[in-house]
Computed example of a mutant assay.
Amino acid sequence: MSEINFDKPFMPFDGMVEKLRSKHLTINNDIDKKLLRILLKDYGYSFIINGYKHPFTHKDVNGNEFFNDNVSVQDIYNMYFIDSTLSELLFKNALHVENKLKATLGYIIAEEYGVDSNLDSDSSYLNSDNYTDNGKSSNVLGKIRSKISNPYSSSRLLKHYKTSKNHIPPWILVQSLTFGELIRYYKIQEEDVKTKVVNNFLPCKEQDVANTKALFISSLELLRCFRNSAAHSSPIYFFDPYTDEKNTNEKILPKKELIKFLGPNIFNNNFDPRIKNFGRKDLYGVMLVLILLLNTLQGRAFLRDLQNFNNTLQDETFTNIEYLKYSHLPSEYIQRLENARKHLEENILWQIL
Rank of each mutant, 00 (worst) to 15 (best):
Y242F: 15
L182I: 08
Y125H: 02
N228E: 11
I275Y: 12
K53H: 03
G15S: 08
N134C: 10
L293D: 04
K159M: 02
H343K: 12
F67N: 06
R145D: 00
D208F: 03
L95H: 15
G15A: 11
N308L: 12
E338W: 06
G180A: 11
Y43F: 15
L40R: 07
L349S: 03
Q207N: 15
P12M: 07
E346F: 05
Y152E: 05
R341K: 14
R274M: 09
K196T: 07
L303Y: 03
P235L: 07
H24L: 09
E257Y: 01
Y131Q: 00
P235G: 04
Y52N: 13
K159H: 04
T132V: 14
Q207S: 13
Q335T: 13
N62Y: 14
E245H: 13
L90I: 14
F261Y: 15
Y43P: 07
N199M: 10
S164A: 10
N320C: 07
C225R: 02
A231V: 12
I48V: 13
N139V: 10
Y152V: 00
T57S: 08
L349V: 05
P55A: 05
L86E: 05
K147T: 02
R156M: 11
K325E: 11
I76L: 13
L202N: 00
T178H: 09
P254N: 00
L344E: 01
L349P: 01
C204V: 05
T319C: 12
K34L: 10
P235K: 03
F47G: 06
N247M: 07
I31L: 13
R224D: 04
G299P: 01
S2M: 15
I252N: 02
F271T: 01
V61G: 12
N347W: 06
L141I: 01
T319D: 12
F318P: 01
M11N: 08
L126R: 03
A110E: 12
N265Y: 04
N200D: 10
H58E: 13
Y45I: 13
A231F: 01
V71K: 00
N166H: 04
E245D: 14
V209K: 10
H54A: 10
R336K: 15
P203E: 08
L202I: 08
S154T: 06
W171S: 06
S146F: 12
H160K: 13
K246H: 11
E3V: 09
Y125Q: 06
E250C: 08
W350N: 10
Y186L: 07
S123P: 01
N29E: 11
D83E: 04
E190H: 15
L303A: 03
M1S: 15
H96I: 04
A340F: 05
Q298P: 06
N277L: 09
D83C: 05
H167G: 00
D315Y: 11
S72Q: 09
S84K: 09
I168M: 03
Y107Q: 14
Y284T: 07
Y107A: 15
L313Y: 07
I275R: 13
N339V: 02
K246R: 12
F239R: 04
N130Y: 14
N211P: 07
L290S: 08
I172E: 02
C204Q: 00
V140Y: 09
R184F: 03
K8C: 08
I148R: 08
D282P: 01
